[in-house]
């Protein structure tokens, strides 16, 4: 057995960096996900959009990381948004109350449009 499959793809859209995790995030790969995301959150004025369309599973600790990334980006004068969240993951976001404290968008276009203003 090996770590659960997770690839992080990224693409620059203007000043925003779109990050697409593909696969699952669980206890076997969460540290790697955290490390890679933190590197991007710590850049100067980061504008990050986490596109969750190809994410099929997240464990509870990785949901906690979303707010951690949100705070980290804010502390570096940046902005962190989430978009295209699958129903299964969105249900947990709501159970955990994160929908009221994170910027979550239905489409990538909407997330990028909201991010195009001053961070």
């Amino acid at each position: 057995m090996s770590k659960s499959q997770l690839n992080l793809e990224s693409e620059q859209h203007g000043e925003s960096l779109v990050i697409r995790p593909v696969g699952v995030i669980d206890a076997s790969n969460m540290d790697r996900f955290q490390k890679m995301m933190e590197e991007m959150c710590r850049k100067e004025s980061p504008r990050l959009v986490l596109d969750c369309h190809d994410l099929s599973y997240m464990n509870s600790s990785s949901f906690g990381l979303l707010f951690h990334f949100h705070r980290l980006c804010e502390s570096h004068n940046g902005d962190f948004r989430i978009c295209r969240v699958p129903h299964k993951i969105d249900s947990v976001i709501r159970i955990l109350g994160l929908h009221s404290i994170l910027y979550i968008h239905k489409s990538l276009e909407d997330a990028l449009a909201r991010q195009s203003g001053p961070a």
Partner: peptide
Amino acid sequence: PGHPSSLSVIR
């Protein structure tokens, strides 16, 4: 096995 790599199999 009581290891994180078992989680995907369990799910």
